[in-house]
């Protein structure tokens, strides 16, 4: 891996788009890490939720967009419920996910693929919200 030095800035279009979608403010975050500590899906994440917020504070949307994290997030909102600074990390992750889905024009989850993935125990509501979350 070659590491390139970044220049932190909040003046990027990508960040403006994300913040526009979610309407929350990453700047409020003090990096306490409570979101990552509480996240039930963290074992599948390459970038932890508090790191997502930090990257967004520094305007590095593309790093978050390229992460596995945005697809591993189950949108359980545990992070948002427990955040002491009202940052709402789930909303930020959702916004990055949407920015990717909208631009790609494609669907991360196609309706035809659902029967193969679903099983008897899966509640119907989960299937509906999965389609809403991962499809345009």
């Amino acid at each position: 891996m070659i590491r390139t030095k970044v220049t932190p800035t909040t003046q990027t279009e990508a960040l403006a788009e994300v913040l526009d979608i979610c309407g929350t403010n990453a700047a409020n975050c003090m990096q306490c890490g409570k979101c990552s500590a509480t996240c039930p899906a963290s074992s599948r994440m390459d970038v932890l939720p508090h790191q997502v917020v930090r990257l967004l504070q520094a305007g590095q949307v593309e790093k978050v967009a390229a992460s596995q994290t945005i697809w591993s997030c189950a949108s359980c909102f545990a992070c948002s419920a427990r955040c002491p600074r009202k940052v709402d990390p789930a909303r930020l992750i959702e916004a990055v996910r949407l920015s990717v889905v909208r631009k790609a024009g494609g669907n991360y989850l196609k309706a035809d693929a659902v029967p193969a993935l679903a099983d008897e125990a899966m509640p119907q509501q989960a299937l509906v919200s999965a389609l809403r979350k991962y499809s345009k």
Partner: peptide, 15 residues
């Protein structure tokens, strides 16, 4: 200005 963002682990340079 060459620094580091210890929270994200990124090396940083600001003009």
């Amino acid at each position: 200005v060459h620094g580091v963002d210890a929270l994200s682990g990124e090396t940083v340079v600001i003009d």
